[in-house]
């Protein structure tokens, strides 16, 4: 597979590295940058970052699998994260998750990330998103939605189209 990092992205990552006294520290930020561009962290991306930060691939592989925000497989264009932790659960996040899954034709009992067949949406239950006062909450890519009711969920989904 061809793996090429665009120059702007590489410059961005080079700039990020200068923020830290040790190159290794930049790994999380570099992973964010790469994931922002590619959507997920491929094996080649891991190797690329490791080389960039003068590390071994295992050092990056360890991180990618530790931090749940990093994806090791391609995901949908829109990643929907529904909070499942207590306050949101009390506020109806299970219903929201079920509703979204139903709407997108996914299995609402599944634990892990699922992607629609057209590769447009990925839905996932995640742990606390820290907006417990406005439960239930969800994220669609970087955007945050609070107090999501069924109509609001519809609205968000339509916006993604």
């Amino acid at each position: 597979m061809n793996f090429a990092v665009p120059t702007e992205l590489e410059t961005e990552i080079d700039e990020l590295i200068t923020h830290y006294p040790q190159k290794r520290s930049a790994s999380l930020m570099a992973l964010h940058a790469l994931q922002g561009h590619f959507g997920w962290i491929s094996r080649e991306a891991i190797e690329w970052i490791a080389q960039k930060l003068e590390l071994l691939p295992i050092n990056i592989y360890e991180l990618v699998t530790f931090y749940p925000m990093f994806r090791t497989n391609p995901v949908g264009k829109y990643q929907i994260k529904v909070c499942r932790t207590l306050s949101c659960a009390l506020g109806g996040s299970y219903k929201l998750h079920e509703y979204l899954c139903q709407k997108l034709g996914l299995d609402s009992n599944a634990q892990s990330l699922q992607t629609t067949k057209d590769g447009k949406f990925s839905v996932e239950f995640v742990e606390c998103l820290a907006s417990c006062g406005t439960a239930p909450v969800m994220m669609c890519n970087d955007d945050f939605y609070e107090g999501v009711t069924a109509p609001k969920a519809d609205e968000i989904l339509t916006k993604c189209k």
Partner: peptide
């Protein structure tokens, strides 16, 4: 064991 979270790059 459903969805064993092994990530394989």
């Amino acid at each position: 064991q459903a969805a064993f979270p092994v990530a394989k790059p």
